[in-house]
Design a protein around this nucleic acid. Structure first.
Length: 854
RNA sequence: GCCCAAGUGGCGGAAUGGUAGACGCAGGGGAUUCAAAAUCCCCCGCCUUCACGGGCGUGAGAGUUCGAAUCUCUCCUUGGGCACCA
């Protein structure tokens, strides 16, 4: 008998799988198809433990489905466009293309030793011209169907570097390189019409039963359906201001009308009035994120204009410009009701506007001081209505009554609005998919001809080097690429130099995997066969944007004939897995600044941690997301070299529930490896044994085996991976201690090896062969539990007295309730605990528990 | 600021209305060994008790229930997202 040597075993079986083409996905009629997909990685340079966890989970599903008779598609690719490649080129020279493909080669090399059941023949990167060319074709189809359009929108503008910044490049309102205060500036940009699909994307969430409820809720809130009243305030100087409100019931408490700094009226005023222009400029400071806007100090400017209240022409309200009103939502104008909205109240107190608090109140009305009273929509409020005649109603009834009233009198109408905004896809960067249009002075915006696709990113073919050293989009500075002939009239024209948001790349890759070499974006036959993705797995950080964009894209692709109707919800089931974390090791330098250390440089003892080199004491910050800057990273390649892939796979699955974060610990990895070694030894021993056992011992072991098969199968199917592994630990203990005979033990060991195969595929193949089985365990049929072997004849019931456990009784499984009650009351411990008191009630939950209530 | 989630021994966690702490790590004791590594066996929430037992206990506080880690409300802490990070 030899030792468990992962290195020898793993390479051998990976070659065997390759040779047998086990994971090659081919369409075939006789087995049901199963498409399992993990969110594809960004090629940052090295794979990390988060990737290992993500792909191991997907691999488990894929291997389990293969063993249960499915035709499995399990592909892998690269989300390869994006800022880091351009930043790398800016920081250290080189070209984003070389950097990216180099990283892909490195990461593929790191991933293959994991032994994933991937069909590598379908691999692609989104920066492959074959992929982004098809994406350009999709764009043109979308354009033709009116799914894409152009309009102005704001971006973060760095006034020193003269460039557009991504949100993550804005630190505390300042540009990350220049340090200059960022401004909001308008550019003409391309948008997808996703808001046209808001209602449908919302309604269809109900059908996504195999998505986590929290993800559906987050999407629901993001889409943000609301019903409210839209109406116009008449300006005293002529004209009107259209507003939208979800709380029309508070109209009698209005103090002012507010408009966005980007509202057409504010723009118009700014043209002639320097004070308005100055205020608008002040509002344009800072970044574009919703968080920045919400947290910014609330600023207001009195335009001097006035409007009439719709219910009382003598009641005039001032018109203010306020920085917290978003032009993108509603009509870009509101009425402010300080008594019933906290933000409006703060605003009115700040600018000394009146607070009218006599309209809606609780049964015990008290004047509004610093806290607004928001009438609850679902609760009855005391209602003093000036025009509908309703005196008491729930908040919702009051809202509906007000809308009805406005419609009946013809000054407003009930409308449904969504918070969801159209998806801006233009990026002023090089390393992305070029938008295939041309700007012509004569013809305007002209789509490229499809036969000219792909519009390739320039490398340096014509001697005009791409310069990444200066900020801004290199495509703008590349005349030989930018200048072209108009596809319509042939006169000199300019290419669009904006590229697409990388979310576009990841919004249809799952469809492309079904026919990755097709000369059209998809092959309808292949997509019809393989779609939908049966199980999608990825991080919770993608719960909203990526998943919503993909749902939109599937619908848009269907409209253009690239996906069947059945694929408009592309992901049947979704699982969101947690991160891999690791302790951070910190020391302080002379001035108290933190200095981080790699785990391999630190010796951890019971009493604390010290630097291996100097013995300096190290502070341990537990459980933080692995990041290069904090040096709390563990390289999967190192772990595989030390213990093998099966150990890494076993550990990331075993230590935490998959939806939660898992902390990587050296001790945990060590323990996982010890356990696999133990299984190896145990199975070797069983394979060589010829001991006789008793029929009783054999039956006990086989009963345990069937229970284990049942529970582990259930765990694998329901993402209870850590509980499944705990069950496998327990069964290994049972098997090791069992006095059963060699034949029964071999049967039990075979089941153990098969149940472990999706998690530790190499070890399982080795032991499968060692136990004398033919073929590969990867393709062997999954074991099935014999239900007759799952139940035993007697059961143990806990007995509670007043909800506290006092005794256990052992009774036949099928004993009647009355007899169970009698047995419980006859128990010594129960009698002692009752201490002579008469039971008032005895609750018997069959097969579960007995509770005696005194 | 807004939306979503999580919180259980020294640690990771199990139990989704029915025996809280399965399984693993760390720790303690023992066997084996010249010794060690490796391996194997036993113990292991806290307080109390010689022991049997008893009390307390799932972030904090309230509530529903015969019974709550699990359901409801309020609060605290941590994590994810907030539309140009991927």
């Amino acid at each position: 008998m030899s030792h468990y040597r992962a290195a020898d075993i793993e390479a051998k079986w990976q070659e065997a799988w390759d040779a047998a083409q086990v994971f090659r996905a081919e369409r075939s009629g006789d087995r049901p198809k199963y498409y399992v997909l993990e969110m594809f990685p960004y090629p940052s340079g090295r794979i990390h433990m988060g990737h290992v966890r993500n792909y191991t989970m997907g691999d488990m599903i894929a291997r389990h489905k293969l063993a249960t008779g499915h035709n499995v598609l399990h592909p892998m690719g690269w989300d390869a466009f994006g800022m880091p490649a351009e930043n790398a080129a800016m920081a250290s020279g080189g070209h984003p293309r070389d950097w990216t493909y180099g990283n892909i080669a490195d990461m593929r090399g790191q991933m293959k030793p994991l032994g994933l059941s991937i069909d590598w023949s379908r691999e692609f990167a989104t920066c492959d011209p074959e992929y982004y060319g098809q994406q350009q074709a999709l764009f043109l189809d979308f354009l033709e169907k009116g799914l894409v359009y152009r309009r102005n929108a704001v971006v973060n503008w760095d006034p020193v570097d003269m460039t557009v910044l991504a949100n993550e490049q804005v630190i505390d309102g300042k540009g990350w390189r220049s340090g200059a205060e960022v401004e909001r500036r308008e550019l003409t940009q391309w948008f997808f019409h996703i808001s046209d699909f808001a209602g449908e994307l919302l309604d269809a969430l109900d059908g996504l039963e195999n998505w986590p409820a929290k993800v559906r809720l987050m999407q629901e809130n993001w889409i943000g359906k609301s019903r409210g009243l839209q109406f116009a305030f008449e300006r005293t100087d002529g004209g009107e201001i259209e507003v939208y409100t979800t709380r029309p019931d508070t109209l009698m408490g209005a103090s002012f009308v507010g408009i966005s700094p980007d509202h057409p009226l504010a723009r118009e005023l700014a043209r002639t009035r320097p004070d308005v222009a100055a205020f608008r400029a002040q509002c344009a400071k800072g970044g574009t994120t919703e968080e920045a806007l919400e947290k910014a100090e609330k600023l207001g400017f009195d335009t001097g204009l006035r409007v009439r209240h719709p219910l009382d022409p003598n009641w005039e309200l001032p018109v203010w410009i306020a920085n917290f009103i978003l032009m993108d939502y509603g009509t870009g104008a509101i009425f402010g009701c300080p008594a019933h909205d906290q933000r409006d109240l703060d605003f009115c107190r700040k600018y000394d506007l009146p607070v009218i608090d006599t309209f809606v109140a609780l049964d015990d009305p008290s004047p509004v001081s610093d806290t607004a009273f928001v009438p609850p929509k679902d609760r009855q409020v005391c209602w003093i209505d000036h025009f509908t005649g309703i005196e008491t109603a729930t908040g919702q009834e009051a809202i509906d009554a007000t809308i009805d009233f406005a419609e009946a009198h013809g000054w407003g109408k009930g409308v449904t609005k969504y918070r969801l905004r159209d998806w801006g896809l233009s990026r002023q960067r090089y390393w992305g998919c070029p938008i295939p249009v041309v700007h012509c002075d004569a013809c305007g915006v002209v789509p490229e001809r499809k036969e000219n696709l792909p519009i390739l990113l320039p490398y340096d073919e014509d001697g005009t080097p791409i310069d990444f050293a200066i900020p801004g989009n290199p495509l703008d500075r590349h005349p030989s690429w930018r200048d072209c002939a108009c596809p319509a009239c042939g006169k000199p024209a300019r290419r669009e130099t904006d590229t697409m948001d990388t979310f576009v790349d990841s919004s249809w890759y799952f469809a492309r995997f079904t026919a990755p070499r097709a000369t059209t974006p998809t092959d309808l036959d292949a997509a019809g066969y393989w779609m939908n993705v049966d199980q999608y797995i990825g991080g919770i950080e993608h719960a909203i944007l990526h998943l919503l964009y993909s749902r939109f894209f599937a619908r848009a692709m269907h409209i253009c004939g690239h996906l069947p109707q059945t694929a408009i919800e592309p992901f049947d089931a979704l699982f969101t897995q947690g991160m891999v974390t690791h302790a951070i090791y910190v020391t302080r330098d002379g001035s108290g600044r933190p200095v981080y250390h790699f785990p391999e440089d630190v010796e951890v003892h019971e009493s604390g941690a010290r630097l291996g080199a100097t013995g300096e004491e190290v502070q341990i910050v537990p459980s933080a997301k692995m990041s290069k800057s904090k040096k709390n990273v563990v390289d999967p390649t190192t772990i595989i070299a030390q213990y093998g892939a099966d150990t890494a796979r076993w550990f990331v699955l075993s230590d935490s529930p998959p939806e939660r974060d898992v902390e990587w610990t050296a001790a945990g990895a060590e323990a996982a490896h010890k356990h696999l070694s133990r299984v190896y030894r145990l199975v070797c021993e069983i394979a060589g044994s010829s001991d006789a056992g008793t029929p009783e011992a054999d039956e006990t072991l086989l009963r345990e085996m069937h229970k284990t098969v049942h529970e582990v199968s259930g765990g694998v199917e329901s993402f209870g991976f850590n509980a499944a592994i705990a069950r496998l630990y327990a069964f290994t203990n049972t098997l090791a201690k069992s006095p059963a005979g060699a034949a029964a033990k071999r049967q039990a060991a075979t089941a153990l090896v098969q149940l472990m195969a999706p998690m530790t595929p190499h070890l399982s193949e080795e032991l499968w062969a060692l136990l004398g089985h033919e073929g590969l365990v990867a393709t062997a049929p999954w074991p099935v539990a014999d239900t007759a072997m799952l139940a035993s004849d007697t059961i143990t019931l806990p007995v509670q007295v007043n909800g506290k456990r006092r005794a256990e009784i052992s009774v036949p499984r099928d004993m009647g309730q009355a007899e169970v009650e009698k047995a419980a009351l006859a128990n010594d411990a129960v009698i002692r605990s009752l201490d002579g008191a008469q039971p008032r009630k005895v609750i018997v939950v069959p097969g579960r528990i007995v509770n005696v209530v005194v």
